[in-house]
Write a protein that binds this DNA or RNA. Structure first.
Lengths: 348, 348
DNA sequence: GAACGCTTTGAAAGCGCTTGCAGAAACTAG
DNA sequence: CTAGTTTCTGCAAGCGCTTTCAAAGCGTTC
């Protein structure tokens, strides 16, 4: 044994259990191969030996070393997850779903944040690749389609919040157009005709869909669309706040606001409050995402609900399928409208 | 070569780059050992060879395989992070800090959630251990002290939100007592004397400290403490909501509420709103944590601020130190009070 | 120019597990 | 009881990198 005893000690201390498969084999009086086979169910093994090995494992408290396993087997049992902001409430919920789905299948998630910056995201992906993840889940990625398609040649990809076609790429996506349509339709149904829209980041498909849904509902309601009622936003509270201020300052009149996401809606409500406009008496507000906090806003926010955690879980499952070279079964989480107290019928 | 070409292909496809250190060595005309040494700066190497190897690395686009590295070197370059709920706004922010701190040092975080359940947490820790993490960061752990002390024999531990003494255990902790004191003092300073307190989970040190601070401030202000003004909570919005209802139903009068955390405060504000009590006109409300969303509540919430992300970053740095067998340098994030619009002086 | 003390480098032995191959064992037929 | 199968099981060769040991290279010094 070349490795000094000291190093060995350190290693043992580090991983808690220095019990190796070999020791189990010796203890059970079989060869390491047999132990491995029992562990992985790779081959039939005589009942008696199975029992002996199991006893040895229990006695020694053996835990297979995943690192060695990865190296030998070529699989790391981990998948990378790129979010934009791990601290955003929206992503938080999805991540919880992903964690659950992945862990169930024995995979571990490796979370990294792209901070909405293409460069950061690229760096994250490289980092994940270097860690030899078996697949990558990209939440609302900002990388160009072609780059994703190339990337998919290295590892299978699950993409949420947008649509990319390619081999080994699967999109878990709720069409936001429908949700946006739902929200706007509801507002129109309540008698509103001057409905402002706080947009999301302009360049994102996901945000564009919400705009599309808004427009579609307007068209269906025979209400002309006007850019005067649209304010830029960034999916953050501050953006929503600024948007309302801009809108109000511009002098347009509106009786309802549809915000591209809940966080924008929060900001919008605060801005309205500051300007002395009551929600929903003076202005109705609808959000999108139905974050857990939305039910506790004052007033509780009406919002487009899509089970974000299910999206996460779905993404995880799809990834497992992709890794196993199965075709993921499409799962559609339906979008509904959670009607609360931030909206009310327009008195005519 | 026994391994079938097919398997080799698959591996190559999986990790994107099948370039190995050996190939680099051959390309550069040196031995693998030399390449390794250059990579790790483990020994002096002739300038000319360094250049040749660097060229080869660039040409082949070599990326060292961390799995092999881990196995050979006995270190996994990853640390486990146990949170209670990855989707909680509070943890989200800390995690972002941890991610940043760890990545900077070349370590990867492995996030898992304990869901506030001791059993789940134990399972998480086992999972992390089996993944051979080099250290574990425990956020508001629920495991008994003794268990943590034992655990620390396997891997170094950084614990937040509580205090545990032991070898290889480091606590990154902001004393919540001070913050709670700050908040309550402020309320008292504003003329409030009937100050209700919405507690956190009873059994948690962190929550107990907040209660202590509240009591201490009361004592300092010569205001008798009464359990009538204390309502149970659970750090969640629903708990805060229920707490206010209980308080109101019990008939006690109060002009201010100090909630053990912001989420409870949100619930409290909603309950107050529902009962027709205006914040801050009828009741002042103060929270704790100063979550990003708090500045956008209606009205914006006065809250005890401690930079949660710094706590995360601090935890990460402490962990790096611990792993390197250095003594972490204590870093104290000071607690301040973010005064907003949910509080006002009591008119006398 | 031989002897000596450094520094640089390579060979080779692992790290702990998986797996192809082939021999051993256990059955089934004949 | 032997030949022919069909299961089991062990051997040994890796997976890609680190690290120890010892040999090789170099520059000095007397």
């Amino acid at each position: 044994m070349r490795r000094s005893e000291l190093a060995r000690r350190a290693a043992a201390a580090t991983n808690g259990s220095a019990v190796t498969l070999e020791m189990v084999a010796k203890e059970a009086g079989v060869s390491p191969s047999t132990v491995s086979r029992i562990l992985n169910g790779t081959a039939r093994v005589r009942e008696a030996k199975v029992r002996a090995v199991e006893a040895a494992i229990a006695k020694l408290q053996f835990m297979p070393n995943p690192v060695a396993r990865s190296l030998a087997g070529g699989k790391s049992m981990s998948v990378g997850v790129v979010t934009q902001a791990i601290d955003s409430p929206f992503y938080g919920v999805s991540l919880a779903g992903i964690e659950k789905g992945l862990l169930q299948a024995g995979y571990s998630p490796l979370f990294v944040s792209g901070h909405w910056r293409e460069g950061d995201e690229r760096r994250c992906v490289d980092h994940l690749l270097s860690r030899r993840v078996e697949g990558i889940i990209l939440m609302t990625s900002r990388l160009p389609d072609q780059e994703l398609i190339n990337l998919a040649r290295s590892v299978p990809l699950v993409v949420t919040g947008r649509r990319v076609d390619g081999d080994r790429i699967y999109c878990v996506d709720v069409d936001c157009t429908i949700g946006a349509r739902l929200a706007t339709d509801y507002l129109i149904g309540q008698g509103h005709r001057r409905i402002a829209f706080i947009a999301g980041p302009q360049d994102h498909p996901d945000a564009m869909q919400r705009m599309d849904g808004y427009k579609a509902a307007l068209a269906a309601g025979k209400i002309p669309f006007t850019t005067k009622l649209v304010a830029a936003g960034d999916y953050l509270e501050t953006g929503g706040l600024a948007a309302i201020n801009t809108l109000l300052d511009s002098g347009v009149r509106f009786t309802a606001v549809f915000a591209a996401n809940d966080q924008s809606a929060y900001g919008a409500m605060l801005a309205l409050h500051r300007r002395g406009l009551k929600v929903p008496q003076a202005v109705s507000v609808v959000g999108f995402d139905d974050l857990p906090a939305s039910a506790f806003m004052i007033p509780p926010l009406t919002s487009v609900h899509r089970s974000i955690d299910e999206i996460g879980e779905g993404a995880a499952e799809a990834m497992i399928d992709l890794i196993a070279r199965r075709t993921p079964h499409v799962r559609i989480a339906t979008t509904t409208l959670a009607i609360r107290e931030s909206t009310r019928p327009l008195r005519s």
